[in-house]
Design a protein around this nucleic acid. Structure first.
Length: 880
RNA sequence: GGGAGCUUAGCUCAGCUGGUUCAGAGCAUCUGCCUUACAAGCAGAGGGUCACUGGUUCGAACCCAGUAGCUCCCACCA
């Protein structure tokens, strides 16, 4: 059957994926083999696949497939995250489109809509991974809100509460007015912002004017947030500020609301900033809050949960915070209290999810006491610092350390419904009990009050931060928190590698390490591979708004999964951003095609018994095969080394070059018989073996084409599929073959190109060398690759010829036509001049006593060799 | 404001503990080829004062200091 000149991925990908999956090759159960485990960073349950996922999961698949081929019990656990805030937002939006407002329905009704939504759209993203070739153990698919994982979350919460690591407290927290929930510090993104700084005058009270006799109209403060004026409870100056000494303890009138507030002093104030006077609004700013605490000031929260002006503000009620800012500035101006406006740069916190500007707000929430936690589990830091857990690249260790050194309490309660509900119950009297179930809570309450009943209890309305479940992922996917037998957990945990983005190093990576040590006394993984962010050629992040993200399914369709995988990997060293370029995917596709055609060549050979061929051909073929074996092993060792360092794109590049250059361009060309001629079955057999080996090296990167061709070279019935075949091993003491003669081939080809000779023109060559044997062995190959009719040694230089150095050997190609004698001479002279210069510098070095005295012996020896080589070359060029 | 890192061919990046036959790779570019595996290809070639300035050293892309530019992380200056 005639094979198409082009590899057609569509025809093979689905076939092999189902074959692998249906035959259970992705599945893992504990056995006596060494486990190799990866847990997927669970994507949002209602998410869709994007470039970041593609890259991330390709890398995981490469690691898993390699481990599987190395005979390990490879287990890649897939799953999804309930993504509390993101999913809830989507459901709210969906309901709004149906005309249903969240506030009009009950919690239970909302949740049933949410689950419905999850069932409908959830997990699409996982099925999209099939297309990519991801070899996950789908039977192990987990979801962070499924029963057993939820139980783990509750169990951990209760335990931490009992251990005093979780507390309920009233503090200043981050409030997202769009999501209408609090956020942890990590979920707040600080962005630089162009702000207006308003100088507003607060008139002195009559009392102040009387007692100080001032003629000033009042005290001017500078603020970027005039809409919080109604929450002002004091003006603060620096105690050493000479300008305001006599005013400390006096009062001013807050504009708009006409509240009389004191002028206080605190060293927090920066005398240089603005006017040196700060309006104190304890309900809306962390520093103000601290000052308020210190000076026992009231906190007046003037905002509602959705960022509008609250009734208690007493003015502008119901107006949006930003609209109010504009209006109040106008009004202050009208009243003559706005002195001036300056443009300044500051930073503003934004919600990671909704991008809303964050409000600081005093609120009663649940927290994890991180200081205390870290005191109990110092391994969280030390394991990473001393390499028990390795980060790739290691530079992220610094980031990690810095964060842990400055860690603050973790706000874990969210004012949402989609998530793990906080297991705390309150009685009507306001007593609280934390317990795993309602029944247990009741039992506890009964100890306080025997008459209390279930209906008297109400559960906390909040749910937990999504990351409070994600941090348990490597444990909970193996049911590590369940009672009873923990065979899976004990076998698979700690996992081996984690592949994720540096953007969630705090959210997730750090917290998994915390959970691992705190709840199991063991690290969750040994290696963390941080991928880069996928950007476009102009270094812009991929985003929906920019529309610079390619259609992934079109891409997979057009170039195939293998081509796409390769394209993404080629330019993505760990920790570097990858600049996505379709040209690279094209390169991947072309590579598939190259391999495909290598197969076409090999499979088309007509074979004959070995002894029907000439000795020269047999010897050449044997040499070619041995040479490739040696090249293969050298590359294979390099690839193993790259993998060890998690330089995966380097490993791929080495595989690429081995196949394209060494296998196709050299080895196959060496043994390829002339058109119509047969090849010995021995040579063909060895070629197949080599082909099989390079396919194995490539399989983790390009699973589909390698499986297809692996089957093809075994006539469809290999002993076992390539995905479970043995990955070529690194070996010590590799014999590196002297292939100096191949250099001669290149030189001759260059001459051909330079002289415009046709590749069809047969040439003769005369080599002047003392190492005749090193060329003689390769004669057959040289003749074939360089189209040479005869090679002779150490005969005189012909009258008309092209001469050239190859290393220290000289060779001549007799050539009658059109030799530019002058040009040849000039070239020769230039070469001599260069060598003399080179020789001079080497000699200078060798004559330098300090060099000879200080340099290592092998370095000196190297220099001496250089000197000898240069001298010999010069001699040949002159004498030639 | 604090910290980390980066600056090597047109582009994206390698260059381990300093030794100029180590300045390298892939892509891109250029030249010549439709040579029955592959034009999604073959054979070649040209590109870099290794950001800048000093220093250490017999010797620096590599070590040190400073300068400039870029990136990221953290941070409560209104």
């Amino acid at each position: 059957m005639e094979l198409d000149k082009h590899y057609n991925p569509q025809e093979v990908e689905d076939k092999w994926y189902s074959f692998w999956n249906e035959n259970g090759y992705f599945d893992s159960v504990p056995d006596q083999r060494e486990p190799f485990t990866i847990v997927i960073p669970p994507p949002n349950v209602t998410g869709v696949l994007h470039m970041g996922h593609m890259l991330n999961n390709t890398i995981q698949d490469i690691l898993i497939r390699k481990a599987r081929m190395e005979g390990k019990n490879a287990c890649w656990v897939p799953g999804t995250d309930h993504a509390s805030i993101a999913t809830e937002a989507k459901v709210v939006k969906m309901l709004a489109e149906k005309g249903i407002a969240k506030k009009d329905i009950s919690r239970d009704e909302f949740l049933s809509y949410a689950w419905e939504w999850k069932e409908k759209y959830g997990g699409i993203i996982l099925s999209q991974l099939h297309k990519l070739g991801a070899s996950c153990d789908w039977k192990r698919t987990r979801f962070t809100m499924e029963d057993s994982l939820s139980e783990a979350v509750i169990q951990v919460f209760v335990k931490m509460y009992k251990d005093g690591l979780i507390y309920r407290g009233t503090k200043m927290v981050n409030w997202d007015p769009d999501g209408k929930t609090t956020l942890s510090d990590e979920e707040v993104i600080h962005k630089e912002n162009n702000a207006q700084l308003f100088y507003v005058t607060y008139p002195f009270s009559d009392e102040t004017i009387k007692s100080t006799g001032t003629s000033e109209p009042g005290l001017t403060i500078a603020t970027t947030r005039p809409e919080t004026v109604m929450g002002d409870v004091a003006i603060c100056v620096h105690p050493d500020d000479t300008r305001y000494q006599n005013l400390i303890g006096k009062t001013v009138i807050v504009p708009i609301v006409n509240r009389e507030v004191p002028i206080i002093a605190d060293t927090y104030i920066d005398i240089e900033f603005g006017t040196g006077c700060l309006k104190v609004t304890p309900a809306h700013d962390e520093n103000d809050y601290n000052i308020g605490e210190k000076h026992k000031l009231e906190a007046i929260d003037v905002l509602t949960d959705d960022g509008k002006i609250h009734e208690r503000a007493g003015a502008y009620v119901g107006m949006d915070r930003f609209a109010c800012r504009k209006q109040i500035v106008k009004d202050l101006d009208t009243q003559g209290l706005l002195l001036k406006t300056e443009q300044i740069k500051n930073t503003l916190g934004h919600s990671e999810r909704t991008n809303a500007v964050i409000e600081k707000k005093i609120s009663t929430q649940w927290f994890v006491n991180m200081q205390e936690f870290m005191k109990l589990h110092p391994e969280v830091l030390s394991s990473v610092m001393d390499g028990e857990i390795k980060f790739h690249p290691a530079k992220f260790k610094n980031v990690y350390k810095h964060w842990l050194d400055n860690i603050k309490d973790w706000n874990i309660s969210r004012q949402l419904w989609w998530g793990h509900r906080i297991p705390a119950w309150y009685s009507k009297e306001g007593e609280m009990v934390v317990a795993e179930t309602e029944e247990q809570a009741l039992t506890e309450f009964k100890k306080l009050n025997s008459n209390i009943e279930l209906k008297d209890l109400s559960q906390d309305n909040d749910v937990l931060d999504t990351w409070f479940s994600s941090w348990l992922w490597p444990i909970s996917v193996f049911d590590g928190f369940k009672e009873g037998e923990k065979k899976d957990f004990e076998y698979y945990y700690p996992t081996n590698d984690l592949v994720t983005g540096p953007d969630i190093i705090f959210f997730w990576v750090a917290r998994m390490i915390m959970a691992g040590y705190a709840f199991k006394g063991k690290k969750p993984f040994s290696n963390v591979y941080f991928t880069g962010i996928v950007r476009d050629k102009q270094r812009r992040k991929m985003s929906k708004q920019l529309g610079n993200s390619p259609d992934l399914f079109e891409l997979l369709e057009k170039y195939g999964a293998d081509g796409t995988r390769m394209g993404m990997l080629l330019s993505s060293p760990a920790g570097n951003d990858i600049l996505y370029d379709e040209a690279q995917v094209e390169q991947g596709r072309n590579f598939c095609n190259k391999i495909w055609n290598a197969y076409r060549l090999i499979s088309g050979w007509e074979t004959v018994a070995d002894d029907t061929l000439s000795e020269e051909v047999k010897a050449s073929n044997q040499l070619a095969s041995d040479w490739f074996s040696s090249r293969f092993q050298v590359s294979c060792n390099g690839i193993h080394e790259s993998f060890q360092d998690y330089k995966i794109s380097e490993a791929l590049m080495a595989t690429y070059k081995l196949i394209w250059d060494d296998f196709c361009s050299l080895y196959l060309e060496m043994i390829k018989p002339s058109y119509g001629d047969p090849i010995s079955s021995k040579a063909a057999g060895e070629a197949k073996m080599h082909f099989e080996n390079v396919l194995k090296l490539l399989h983790p990167f390009m699973p589909f084409i390698t499986e297809e061709l692996f089957h093809a070279i075994h006539n469809g019935t290999p002993e076992k599929p390539i995905l479970v075949s043995e990955y070529p091993k690194a070996k010590d003491n590799v014999h590196v073959m002297n292939d100096n003669a191949l250099g001669l081939v290149s030189e001759i080809r260059t001459i051909r190109n330079g002289k415009g000779m046709s590749p069809k023109l047969e040439l003769e060559v005369i080599v002047k060398t003392e190492q005749t044997a090193s060329y003689q062995t390769w004669e057959g190959i040289i003749k074939k690759l360089a189209n040479i009719s005869s090679i002779s040694y150490n005969t005189d230089k012909p009258e008309k010829c092209i001469s050239q150095l190859h290393g220290t050997d000289e060779f001549f190609i007799p050539f009658e036509e059109a030799i530019d004698v002058e040009a040849e001479k000039k070239k020769n002279e230039e070469e001599i001049a260069y060598l003399r210069g080179f020789l001079k510098s080497v000699e200078a070095k060798l004559n330098n006593e300090k060099f000879v005295a200080n340099a290592k012996p092998e370095v000196i020896e190297k220099e001496r060799q250089k000197k000898a080589d240069a001298e010999e070359k010069i001699k040949k060029l002159i004498g030639g």
